[in-house]
């Protein structure tokens, strides 16, 4: 196991993302941070706090659980447990900032966009991630990234919010 980012770096990374967000979205009347369950939720919470600390209006918050939108339901594996999707604001006319901890194949983001769309017609969707680990399988790119990692596809990348570190575990491949 390999810790690639420690507490200070993670704190710094979140702050940087928040300030880039505020700069990017200046002049946008209404936007919301939407965490992708489960990994994106703590980051979305922290970004909301940071944005407010920077003197900007606190954005709306919501979360999506993409289980029902996955493209890999028929795996014969135990069914994933459903989580709550909660978008407690009108999506139509709102700018949506999707938030996830790790960007990998892009399939999760595609599913999350599909889900947001079923709630309304957003003005735009942007994507913010803490870690981009590569190996995309879809034409998906993040608008803001705190840490880009070169990984092997079999590696496991974990953002541990309790210990506040980013770890890479080498896979069998």
């Amino acid at each position: 196991m390999n810790v690639v980012w420690t507490r200070e770096q993670l704190d710094e990374g979140v702050k940087r993302l928040a300030s880039q967000l505020v700069t990017t979205l200046v002049g946008v009347p209404r936007w919301a941070l939407v965490g992708i369950r489960d990994g994106g939720v703590p980051l979305a919470d922290e970004l909301a706090d940071e944005v407010e600390r920077l003197g900007a209006r606190r954005p709306d918050r919501g979360d999506v659980d993409i289980t029902l939108y996955r493209d890999d339901l028929y795996t014969g594996l135990e069914k994933p447990v459903l989580g709550d999707t909660d978008l407690p604001f009108p999506v139509t006319g709102c700018g949506i900032v999707l938030v996830d901890d790790v960007l990998f194949t892009g399939r999760t983001v595609r599913a999350a966009m599909g889900e947001v769309w079923d709630f309304g017609r957003p003005d735009f969707i942007k994507l913010v991630v803490l870690v981009d680990r590569g190996h995309r399988e879809l034409p998906v790119a993040a608008d803001l990234v705190a840490l880009s990692l070169h990984t092997r596809k079999s590696d496991r990348v974990t953002v541990d919010w309790d210990r506040r570190e980013v770890r890479v575990e080498p896979g069998a491949g």
Partner: peptide
């Protein structure tokens, strides 16, 4: 239907 259907099929790494 969610729990019963889809016991086989392609496997994707999410």
């Amino acid at each position: 239907l969610y729990h019963l259907l889809g016991r086989e099929g392609p496997v994707d790494e999410g």
